[in-house]
Structures are given as structure tokens and as C-alpha cells.
Amino acid sequence: MKILVCLKQIPDMESKFRINEEGIWYDEANLAWRINEYDEYAVEQAVQVKEQLGGAEVVALSLGPARVKEAIKKALAMGCDRGVHINDEEGWRRDPFEIASLIAGYAKEEGFDLVFTGMQSQDRGSAQVGVLLAGMLGLPAMTTVVDFALEDGAVRVKRELEGGMKACVKCNLPAVVTCQLGLNTPRYPTLPNIMKAKRKEMQTIEAADLAAAGSRLVTDRLAFPEKKGGGLVLEGEAADLAGKLATILRDKIKVL
């Protein structure tokens, strides 16, 4: 079996973000990078499938500048077999459709039986690449998966729905799965596996050599949320509170 895991390297969410000069994305200076949380579930699930089958080839793919190789290395340390780096200095400019088309450009010739992606990225959060990729490869897609089982060549998953509901879905291979929080606990790579990962194959493909579809979306402007006034907690006896509240509504908010 051949498995593809797509992962994105994203800034740690506690980082000090600044908006870049063009005003359409964040400035990359002074950021700490890590694997997108949902993609870690994808990596873990792919490695678990490999362990279940007692063998499979798991390819970890990431698109972006040279720094994303660190994310691929971590996936290799977690148990993926080889890495594919789609080198793209300006990857952050691309919309989900373009990115999916680049990945599809690589994946269509490889004949993957299973494709795992995160449900969404923590930075862009469009949640589109996985499903668009499935469409481009002509595969069925199961999204927001929180439970995964592979039995007799078919996949059974639980999908998280609104209101605590779950949908049980069955699907034949090949298929695309997008992973949600709760699916698994990503493993901590062992030292021998970290060392082995350094010697695993890492293929670099120039994004320019893959046929990218044109972009459909244009980011117009990026901004921090406007600061709103803080909440106010009134304390005291009910009668006083009613008076205070009335004063605020009348004088400050002017609704009375």
C-alpha cells in the first residue's frame, strides 16, 4: 500500500505576529515553526496504518520554502518513509486551489491508495486543500475524521458533525481522509527514529515544474481584530445592581 500524507508547516500560534508589508499575510520574521496540528494527526494515522499492515510506503509531502523540510523531517522521524518537498518560496501567496493542483500534479502519477491531510491549517484555516485534492485526483473524500479503521481494504471512519453528532462512513480505497482533533495522539519520535530520519530520502520538486492551476481567490487585506472594550462585572446587592445597570444603559449606551 502506498500512502500520502500532506502536511503544512505553520507558525506556533503563540508567536508574535506582525502583518507583512503588502498587508495580505503575516511577516515571517521572528516566528517559531511547527507542523500544523491537524497534519500531525494525519501523520500519526498514516504511520498507524503502516504498522497495522506490517508494511506500506508512507510519503510525507509539504509545500513551501526550504524551512518546511524541518516539518517533513519530523514526519519522517515519526515513521514516514520518504519526504517530498515542493519547493515554493512564495507558497504563502497561493490559494487552496493552486496548492491542491500542485500536490495533485505530483500525486496523480504515484498511485496512492490512501491520502491523509489535516482537516485545515491553523494559520489559513480554509479547510479546502484536502477536498480539492480529492476532487482533482478523482477520489472520494472523508472530512473531519475523528475515528479511523482499515478493514478488508475498506475504510470505516467516524466524522465529527455539529452538536456532538458523529457520522459513520464506509468507503473503498483509494480515498482521501482529512483529520480532526481527537483522531489520535501523535507519537513523540524516538531518538533512533530521529537519527534514521536524517538518512531517509528527501526529494525536492520545484513548484515551477508542476503545472499549477490559476488562483481563484485573492486576499485583499489582513488585519488584527479590532480591540473592543473590556467587559464589566457589577457586584453588590440586587437593588443597587439594577440602579447601576440602568445608569449605564441610560448614560453610556444611551438606549434608554
Partner: peptide, 16 residues
């Protein structure tokens, strides 16, 4: 431990 790896501190604060 992951925070130490990524941000150089266990509290998960931005290294910067």
C-alpha cells in the same frame, strides 16, 4: 517538551 523544542521554553510563549 514540544514547547521547548519549538519556542525554547516549556511555557509555550513566543521565543521572540
Amino acid at each position: 517538551i514540544d514547547n521547548v523544542e519549538v519556542n525554547g521554553n516549556p511555557l509555550g510563549m513566543a521565543f521572540a
